[in-house]
Design a protein around this nucleic acid. Structure first.
Length: 473
RNA sequence: GACCCCGUCGUCUAGCCUGGCCAAGGACGCGACCCUUUCAAGGUCGAGAUCGCGGGUUCGAAUCCCGCCGGGGUCACCA
C-alpha cells in the first residue's frame, strides 16, 4: 500500500545548482520514488536581491538533465515563495493573535550594540526578549518574533543521527517577520512544509542547528512535525566546504565537461550512501535500493578521479547510439567537420568508449576520424619512419588498392600475410599505418580505424604520409 | 567563543545498532605482471588503515561506556 509520503527540494535561485544541492535533490527524489511518494519542487526566492529568473531556469534545467522530475512545482503557480506571502502573513497573524508571537521594536542598531557587548564579554549573543511583554502597538514599526519557552529543551528526532537535544537556553525569540513585512527563511520553510504537507524533510547537515527553532515554530502553530533527516555534506579535497574556488561545482559545468547524467546521479548517490560493495547503479537500481538507513553520518570528500571512473563505466555501458547523440555536440563545439551520420558515429564511439573517461576526452580522441592529421607526432615518426618506411608505405598502398572488403578481420588478414611475407612483425606495419591515419603512435585498433575511415580516405592518408616520409625532413 | 554534528586505507565506503565469522572487506587512485598491432579495456598480484587518541567494561571491542584531541556546521531583521 503506497504511503502518502511527500518530500521536497527547495533550492534558492541565487546561483547554479551545485553538487551539494544536486545530491540533496537526488536523495529526496530517490526517497520519494522508492516509496511511491510525491516529490515537490519549491523555489525559495524570498531574497529578492540575489534571486534571479535566470538562475531559476538554470536550476530547472539542471534538474531535468539529471532526470529528477518533480510531481509538483514550477511552472505550476504557487511553488515560489514570492507567490506565497499571503500564506506567511496569515500564519504570522494567527501566531500573534494566539500570543505565540509578539511585536518587537528593537532596531537592528540596538541589537548590534547588544551583540557587541556580549562579544566583548565573550558571551554568545541571544535576543534578551526586551519586547516580549511590552505589547508594542501595531502602529509602531516592528518585527515579529516567536515566543519560545524559556525553560527546557527541544529534541530533534533525526532519522540519520538519532535524537539531538538543544537546550532552550541556547535559543532565542527569533524573527518570523521583518520590519519591512517580509517573512524570514526559517518561518517560510516551516509554513511551506506544513501547508505543502511535507512528511519528510531531507536536507544537508548544515541545517541541523536550525531545526530546533523550526520545531518550536511547528509546535506554536500546532502542526505535526515531519520526519527530519540530515545528510552529510560534500566537502572539497581540503575538507572545507565545496566552493567555486575548488573548480567545477555546478552540475551544468559537469555536463559541459562531458559527464553523463547517469554517472552524475550514480556518483552523487554513492557519496554518503551505500549498498554493500556495489559501485555502479542504474537509476532503477537506485530507486529500488535507496533508503535512509544506509545514509552515512560522516561528510564526504568529492573526488573527481573516482567520479571520472564512474563516468567511464557509464560510457562503456550505454548503447553506442545514445553515446553518439551525446557526443555530437562536443564534436561540433570543437569545430570539427560534421560526422557522416549517426550510425557511422556510433561505430566511432565503439572504438573510443573504453579509452575516454569523459565526452570531452572522446571528442578529442575522435578528431582524426573527422579530419586528416595536420601533422605527425615527432616522437612517433622518429621511432617508426626509418629508411624502409617509404617502400613499406608503397607496398601497403598497393595491397590496399587491391583490397575489396574493408572489414577489420579481412584487413588484419591482409596485414598479417604481408608482414609474414616481408619477415616483419605485425606491429611494424600497424604503426606505420597508424601514424598515417591518425598522426599518432596510439589509437584504437588500427583495422577498425581503417574500416571506419573507408578505402578512399585510408588510401589518401597513406599517400600523404608516404609523400611526407619520402620528402627530405 | 557557545552549542551541535562527525572521526575505518590518500579518497569513497562495508562492518558498528544485534561485541567473537575482521591479524578489517570492496572501490578509486598508485605499482608490477599477464593479455596485446599501439593506447586503452580486461585479468592476476601488490603496497596502503595498530579502525583519531587515552582509559574502562568484557574471556574477547572497529563494534559498548567515559575523557580528550581533531575536523565541520550553526549562532543575522541571509537563505
Amino acid at each position: 500500500m503506497p504511503e502518502p509520503l511527500r518530500v521536497r527540494f527547495p533550492p534558492s535561485p541565487t546561483g547554479h545548482l551545485h553538487v551539494g544541492g544536486a545530491r540533496t535533490a537526488l536523495f529526496n527524489w530517490l526517497f520519494a520514488r522508492h516509496h511511491h511518494g510525491t516529490y515537490v519542487l519549491r523555489i525559495e526566492d524570498t531574497d529578492l536581491s540575489r534571486s534571479t529568473e535566470e538562475y531559476t531556469q538554470s536550476l530547472l534545467e539542471a534538474l531535468r538533465w539529471l532526470g529528477l522530475d518533480w510531481d509538483e512545482g514550477p511552472p505550476t503557480p504557487g511553488y515560489r515563495q514570492t507567490e506565497r506571502f499571503d500564506v506567511y502573513r496569515t500564519h504570522a497573524l494567527r501566531l500573534l493573535a494566539e500570543g505565540k508571537a509578539y511585536r518587537c521594536r528593537c532596531t537592528p542598531e540596538t541589537l548590534e550594540a547588544l551583540r557587541k557587548t556580549a562579544e566583548a564579554r565573550k558571551e554568545t549573543f541571544r535576543y534578551p526578549g526586551t519586547c516580549r511583554g511590552a505589547n508594542v502597538p501595531a502602529s509602531e514599526p516592528h518585527a515579529l518574533r516567536l515566543a519560545i519557552p524559556r525553560e527546557g529543551e527541544t529534541v530533534v528526532h533525526d532519522v540519520v543521527r538519532g535524537d539531538v537535544a538543544f537546550s532552550h537556553a541556547e535559543l532565542d525569540d527569533w524573527i518570523l517577520v521583518r520590519t519591512d513585512g517580509t517573512p524570514t527563511y526559517n518561518f517560510c520553510v516551516v509554513v511551506d512544509d506544513v501547508t505543502m504537507r511535507i512528511t519528510h524533510v531531507i536536507r544537508g547537515n548544515d541545517h541541523l542547528s536550525n531545526t530546533p527553532k523550526q520545531v518550536l515554530c511547528y509546535e506554536a502553530l500546532g502542526y505535526p512535525l515531519p520526519a527530519f533527516a540530515h545528510i552529510p555534506m560534500i566537502l572539497a579535497a581540503d575538507k572545507t566546504r565545496l566552493s567555486k574556488r575548488h573548480g567545477a561545482t555546478s552540475v551544468l559545468a559537469f555536463r559541459d565537461m562531458g559527464i553523463l547524467p547517469e554517472a552524475m546521479v550514480n556518483y552523487l548517490a554513492r557519496l554518503g550512501w551505500s549498498h554493500g560493495d556495489q559501485e555502479i547503479f542504474t537509476r532503477q537500481e537506485l530507486v529500488e535500493h535507496f533508503d535512509l538507513a544506509h545514509v552515512g553520518s560522516a561528510d564526504a570528500v568529492f573526488d573527481l578521479e573516482k567520479f571520472k571512473w564512474v563516468n567511464h563505466q557509464w560510457i562503456m555501458r550505454l548503447p553506442a547510439e545514445r553515446l553518439a547523440r551525446e557526443l555530437a555536440p562536443f564534436l561540433d563545439r570543437a569545430g570539427l567537420p560534421a560526422p557522416r551520420d549517426l550510425a557511422w558515429l556510433g561505430r566511432v564511439v565503439e572504438t573510443l568508449r573504453e579509452r575516454a573517461r569523459t565526452l570531452v576526452e572522446m571528442a578529442e580522441q575522435a578528431v582524426f576520424y573527422l579530419k586528416a592529421p595536420a601533422a605527425y607526432d615527432p616522437q612517433a615518426t622518429a621511432k617508426f619512419w626509418k629508411d624502409h618506411a617509404p617502400e613499406r608505405y608503397a607496398l601497403l598502398i598497393k595491397r590496399l588498392e587491391a583490397q575489396e572488403t574493408m572489414d577489420p578481420g579481412a584487413l588484419e588478414g591482409l596485414y598479417r600475410f604481408l608482414a609474414a611475407d616481408l619477415g616483419l612483425k605485425l606491429v611494424d606495419l600497424a604503426q606505420l599505418t597508424r601514424i598515417a591515419l591518425t598522426g599518432k603512435a596510439a589509437s584504437p585498433p588500427i583495422f577498425e580505424v581503417v574500416s571506419i575511415l573507408g578505402k578512399p580516405e585510408t588510401l589518401a592518408r597513406l599517400r600523404t604520409a608516404a609523400a611526407a616520409v619520402g620528402a627530405p625532413r
